[in-house]
Design a protein around this nucleic acid. Structure first.
Lengths: 238, 238
DNA sequence: ATTTATTATAGGTCTGACCTATATCACTTT
DNA sequence: AAAGTGATATAGGTCAGACCTATAATAAAT
């Protein structure tokens, strides 16, 4: 018959505590890098057993919100990265052959143009400063493939942040991270340098709000990546 | 002196056990839907304390690999839900005002048309069977708002699965779940019935591979939802 | 036949003990 | 002075065993 209520979700103490702490981290009541009380202290403060606290810590750990070190000067350190759980999920699926590089590509091609468009619309002064400072940093290490690779990834992260939609941001970050791990786990200086140059062009189009031009350059960027990826995959031993 | 060994990463028993079980689930040595031994039995089998087993279970739970029920006929059930960590992340952000319903809307509007398009392209016989069985179930409970609401959500999940891209699937699942929780946590039979009828139309367009018509109906679906959402929000006390 | 106690099950929580890795400091040794 | 050695305190890691609580199934009562 007609139900008047849906059953409400009962929660374990460990889950409640985990989301309690998670919220404090997200609200920045607890800052990234700072240290939580010891397990024993948390148990006393929260008036639960240490076992419950530890279960909560396992949850927070697996969500990427904390990092734990043993011994004196050790403890529970806040290290929040919103997109990490997504990366972990995707990584597990990739390891298991449930998703392919093409799937990631598919998704990026579907929503990064939208990000570019929004970024071009919303571009603020501080965003442009961020981009310029990124480029300056990169040019100062123009012969360091590791550094350059990271900056090339960071570029897309900044664009995602500029979209103004945090969901797009974290999805993009996760996709880039997993892509770097499963597909671009190699280094090629010339490649990164060329990529960097495309990014500079793309940034200029965005800051000048030339949306069409920006989209064109994004596809150029992606094509360039894809070509390089296919080349490097074909030279790999099976 | 040259180091002969690098320090190896020590892992808690709980982590080792969690990935042990995770692997078995992924390899399908343990099937989804089946039941793991009881906590006490696992502790005995693995020769660790029950506390360790429970911490492992918290990890597996937060990764969406298991579901736990109390009491007799209860226990630890395998339920690979890859999108769970994403839902949890988004939920937390929503609770803390870091993302809004509009953000979720923005993302859905951006990539569900793509899903619809791919679904219309890829629609297989078994997909159509699934859709029809969904509709049949829903029509058998056409006066139950809870049941209907769940089926209306499930409809979009099936479409996402039909896209053939698991990433789109899990992203969509997470978005729908969070949307249902933060925005549609109320019940309205007539609304759900109307929504259902749109879904039926949409499904027909998709199975007949009428992509344009399908997209049009999707936007109708979204408009309908948005209207209802705004109405219900405006009648809520601030 | 339906409702209401009863009971067994399996997860949930608590207590308090002991183990173990590690940063620090004091003390040698070279 | 530098480097190795050892003691110590810290804080997480593990364990054992007890008791609490929700729930499905069964039996008893209506």
């Amino acid at each position: 018959m007609k139900k008047m209520f849906e059953p409400f979700k009962k929660k374990r103490y460990s889950e409640q505590i985990a989301s309690l702490i998670q919220k404090k981290i997200i609200k920045e009541d607890i800052l990234v890098g700072s240290r939580l009380p010891t397990e024993r202290q948390l148990a006393e403060d929260l008036n639960v057993s240490r076992a419950v606290v530890r279960e909560a810590l396992r949850i927070l750990d697996s969500l990427g919100h904390i990092q734990i070190k043993k011994g004196p000067k050790g403890g529970i350190f806040v290290s929040n990265v919103y997109h990490k759980p997504i990366s972990v999920s995707l990584k597990t699926m990739a390891d298991n052959g449930q998703i392919t590089v093409d799937d990631i590509w598919d998704v990026r091609l579907n929503f990064e143009p939208y990000i570019i468009m929004k970024a071009a619309k919303n571009a603020k002064k501080e965003d442009i400063i961020k981009l310029n400072s990124l480029f300056k940093d990169a040019e100062m290490h123009f012969d360091d493939p590791v550094y350059l690779k990271n900056k090339n990834i960071e570029f897309h992260v900044i664009l995602a942040n500029m979209s103004g939609n945090p969901i797009l941001s974290i999805f993009t970050k996760a996709l880039l991270e997993i892509l770097a791990e499963v597909a671009f786990n190699f280094l090629d200086l010339t490649f990164e340098q060329n990529l960097f140059n495309i990014h500079k062009e793309l940034a200029e189009a965005i800051t000048k709000r030339k949306t069409k031009e920006a989209k064109r350059l994004f596809y150029k960027d992606m094509d360039f990546l894809k070509n390089h990826l296919q080349k490097s995959l074909s030279t790999k031993k099976k």
